[in-house]
């Protein structure tokens, strides 16, 4: 470790302790020292991540490595308690359900022509799950393909129908919207013509944009025919519609990130430093 790095590290530690002590003085209650430590810790971890804007450094790497470890354990624990204890144990054993304090859901799976006891059926994902862990043992690693095959088969079987229903059929049916909204003839249309957001013209124009936009967007994705002539012009409109979509998505993403940043800055200036109320 270089001398400069050591000095910086010592200064950071000093500021941490100082911040902890000062923060503890501003918090009321029995857990003031603990609460002050946690707020200071969260603030220093926030600053450690933000230090990456200057350049990659040891404090960022520390926070990054900590995040990886904590995240992996977080998802393991949540998965264990919500799925294994919450959904598997109640179907597997009465004793285990009692031990974990969850209601036993034992019973039978009735196919009409075949009846299977629940516990027997739910040994299948346990065995397949255990096989998945064999990936860590090279000699029997090939067995991990079995659960993978199950996951792939389930995904394919269930999503074939679901996507056909939600992403294909319902999207197409929602595209066929009336192009003449609240229509009472041309006289009525021109007499009441306006660019009001809730007006008749805007409603009709919006439906036209949706219908033509979807058709032109799909034409752009159709690569079996050369994009020339009228087909090419429609494809060009499709590109424009897609560009507006990407622009809108981009704008929303930027806003989301900025609001997260505002959240972190609020935490630093309000919860930690107490500068803003």
């Amino acid at each position: 470790m270089k001398r400069t790095s050591l000095i910086v590290f010592a200064v950071v530690c000093l500021i941490f302790v100082l911040s902890w002590v000062l923060k503890a003085g501003t918090i009321d209650g029995d857990n003031a020292i603990q609460d002050a430590f946690l707020v200071t810790l969260a603030s220093f971890l926030t600053l450690a991540i933000m230090s990456f804007m200057y350049k990659d450094n040891a404090y960022y790497k520390f926070a990054e490595h900590l995040f990886v470890g904590v995240s992996a354990a977080y998802w393991m624990c949540v998965g264990f308690w919500s799925t294994i204890v919450g959904n598997l144990v109640p179907r597997l054993s009465e004793g285990l359900s009692e031990a974990f304090g969850v209601p036993y859901l034992g019973g039978e799976l009735d196919f009409g022509f075949l009846t299977l006891p629940y516990p027997l059926l739910y040994f299948i994902p346990i065995i397949l799950g255990a096989f998945l862990l064999f990936r860590l043992v090279p000699k029997v690693g090939w067995l991990s393909r079995w659960p993978l095959a199950f996951i792939v088969g389930t995904f394919a079987g269930l999503n074939l129908v679901r996507y056909l229903r939600s992403d294909f059929m319902s999207q197409i049916s929602s595209t066929f919207v009336p192009l003449l909204v609240d229509w009472h003839g041309f006289g009525h249309f021109f007499a009441n013509f306006s660019l009001a957001a809730d007006g008749q013209f805007v409603a009709m124009f919006s439906n036209l944009v949706i219908f033509l936009g979807v058709v032109c967007g799909l034409i752009y994705f159709f690569f079996s025919k050369e994009h020339t002539g009228l087909f090419g012009k429609a494809s060009r409109v499709g590109i424009w519609i897609l560009m507006i979509t990407f622009g809108a998505s981009f704008g929303y993403t930027v806003m989301g990130r900025i609001s997260l940043l505002v959240g972190r800055l609020t935490f630093l200036f309000k919860d930690w430093l107490g500068i803003i109320s």
Partner: peptide, 8 residues
């Protein structure tokens, strides 16, 4: 089953 295997 899918969810349980995902936990594994």
């Amino acid at each position: 089953f899918f969810d349980i295997i995902a936990v594994f």
